[in-house]
């Protein structure tokens, strides 16, 4: 508990104080009142960074949670080879985000990347794009890489849950003449409801903490199209040497996440989802 207090709560408290100062991290802080917060609310890049992170979270729900669920169903078989495939599909989860980021920068490189050279070799050279240089595609590809990295994690969670669904439910459904899709929507999804809700929570909180992939792949570029709160905060506080302002931004971030979390806990308490 002491450890937690020292390295989580104390800095949180200090943040609130520094947020009201002009400070470069070295000389004595000067009291700034609400100036930093006023600036934060007119800082379009900062505001846009929340839009990006929301888009990112929405995309992770598709590329990670949904894709993970689909793959769990697809890979749910006792046949030879499926165990290996599950292992391979999960493998990116154990890699570090920075390794994933560096690797995918190579995959997406305009001239020498795997993606563009594949397109060129099958005669689709015109489709080759500078994927990370265009505001429209850069964020999308970060989301895809994030999906590549984490879909395996969600796949394993859903896979475990699938295994617990009694077989006879499906047999009964089959006798009633339900096809695969109907079985999925009528049995599988409802049985996985609890897991889906927990996974969404993980994806949302994980999304706000997102830094590594953005930092290694684009660091906010092009034109701030992939700027998320974390990268922008680090830029303000360190690159621009404005610790006071950077900290104010962290307080705003904390507030936003807390509001979302409280809302979520309220809902989940009502639904008795997490044993809380």
């Amino acid at each position: 508990m002491l450890l937690f207090a020292t390295f989580v709560l104390l800095p949180l408290g200090a943040s609130v104080y520094y947020a009201f100062t002009f400070w470069d991290g070295f000389s004595a802080p000067r009291w700034a009142g609400f100036a930093n917060f006023a600036r934060a609310l007119t800082d379009t890049t900062f505001l846009m960074s929340f839009v990006h992170v929301v888009l990112y979270i929405a995309a992770t729900l598709v590329f990670e949670v949904t894709f993970g669920l689909v793959m769990a169903v697809l890979l749910n078989s006792d046949r030879r080879g499926f165990s290996l495939m599950r292992g391979m599909f999960f493998a990116p989860v154990v890699l570090s985000m920075s390794a994933a980021g560096v690797l995918w920068k190579f995959v997406l490189d305009y001239r020498t990347g795997l993606l563009n050279s594949t397109l060129r070799s099958v005669g689709l050279g015109d489709w080759a794009q500078p994927w990370l240089a265009q505001p429209e595609t850069a964020l999308l590809f970060i989301c895809i890489v994030s999906g590549w990295k984490y879909a395996g994690f969600y796949m394993v969670i859903f896979f475990a849950a699938l295994r617990r669904i009694p077989r006879n439910l499906y047999e009964a459904a089959r006798l009633d003449g339900a096809n695969g899709v109907q079985q999925f929507t009528a049995i599988t999804l409802p049985m996985l409801k609890q897991n889906v809700i927990v996974c969404i929570l993980l994806a949302v909180t994980g999304g706000f903490a997102g830094f590594d992939l953005f930092f290694t792949m684009t660091n906010g570029q092009p034109f701030g199209a992939t700027e998320v709160p974390a990268t922008w905060i680090i830029k303000q506080a360190f690159d621009q040497n404005q610790i006071g302002y950077g900290v104010a931004l962290t307080v705003v971030l904390t507030l936003v996440v807390s509001l979302i979390s409280i809302g979520y806990l309220k809902i989940s308490e009502r639904g008795n989802v997490t044993r809380y």
Binding site: Q129, P130, W131, L132, A133, Q221, P222, F223
Partner: peptide
Amino acid sequence: FNKDMQALGADPAMATFFQEG
């Protein structure tokens, strides 16, 4: 300009020049 100008780092751009890209 090169199409990937905004995604390329300063040093890789230099390498591209030396590689006759």
